[in-house]
Amino acid sequence: MLVEAPLEAGAGFGYKDTIAYISYHGTSIAEVPIEHETVPARGKLNITTYANVTAVQLISSPYFWGDVRAGQFELTSMATLHGKVGVFKILKMRATVSSTCDISVHFISQDIESKCHSKIKL
């Protein structure tokens, strides 16, 4: 998951521990813990973590075998990060960042691609 901080120079975003959710065709298949961190001003933070996927939810999906035959799964991860924005270490404001990632898992090439979008609300 990638979180971007599209903030003015001198502003960083520190967020609290949270949980991200991974879904497969609209069905939640995993909860992923995300530990607190700080995204630097105008920076990006690539969050690497592990997910314990609920295999029963995945296999029972009517899309599962078709995706296996196609050689790829399409997943979506969603997280809402609550924290504070610090501007020049003087002003601190509450902020919420919502991040959504579209994840493609390719079986044949054993590759994973993700495209993430983040929005900040002050």
Rank of each mutant, 00 (worst) to 15 (best):
M1W: 04
V3W: 02
A5Q: 15
P6L: 11
L7I: 15
E8T: 15
E8M: 12
A9T: 13
A11S: 11
A11Q: 12
A11C: 02
G12N: 15
G14H: 11
Y15H: 10
K16W: 07
D17Q: 08
I19K: 12
A20W: 05
A20Q: 06
Y21L: 10
S23W: 01
S23M: 03
S23F: 05
G26Y: 03
T27A: 04
S28Y: 07
S28L: 14
A30W: 09
A30C: 14
P33S: 08
E35Y: 07
E35K: 06
E37I: 03
E37A: 02
T38A: 10
T38I: 10
T38Y: 13
V39F: 05
V39G: 02
P40W: 05
G43Q: 01
K44R: 03
K44Q: 02
N46M: 06
I47L: 03
I47T: 00
I47G: 01
T48E: 04
T48K: 06
A51F: 00
N52F: 00
V53S: 02
V53G: 01
V56T: 07
V56D: 12
V56G: 09
S61A: 01
P62Y: 03
Y63F: 00
F64L: 00
W65K: 02
D67M: 00
D67Y: 02
D67R: 01
A70T: 07
A70V: 06
Q72Y: 03
Q72A: 08
Q72E: 06
F73G: 03
F73L: 12
F73W: 09
L75T: 05
S77Q: 05
S77Y: 05
M78Y: 13
A79I: 09
T80L: 04
T80C: 11
L81C: 11
H82C: 06
G83C: 09
G83I: 06
K84V: 07
K84E: 15
V85A: 05
V85C: 07
F88L: 12
F88I: 02
I90C: 08
I90N: 08
L91S: 12
K92G: 03
K92W: 13
M93C: 07
M93H: 11
M93E: 11
R94A: 04
R94N: 15
A95C: 04
A95Q: 10
A95L: 08
A95D: 04
T96P: 14
V97R: 12
V97Q: 13
S98D: 15
S99G: 05
S99N: 15
C101P: 07
D102Y: 10
D102P: 02
D102G: 10
I103N: 00
H106L: 09
I108C: 11
S109A: 08
Q110K: 14
I112H: 06
E113I: 04
E113F: 05
C116K: 06
H117L: 11
H117V: 08
K119E: 15
K119D: 15
K119R: 15
I120P: 13
K121P: 06
K121S: 11
K121G: 05
L122T: 11
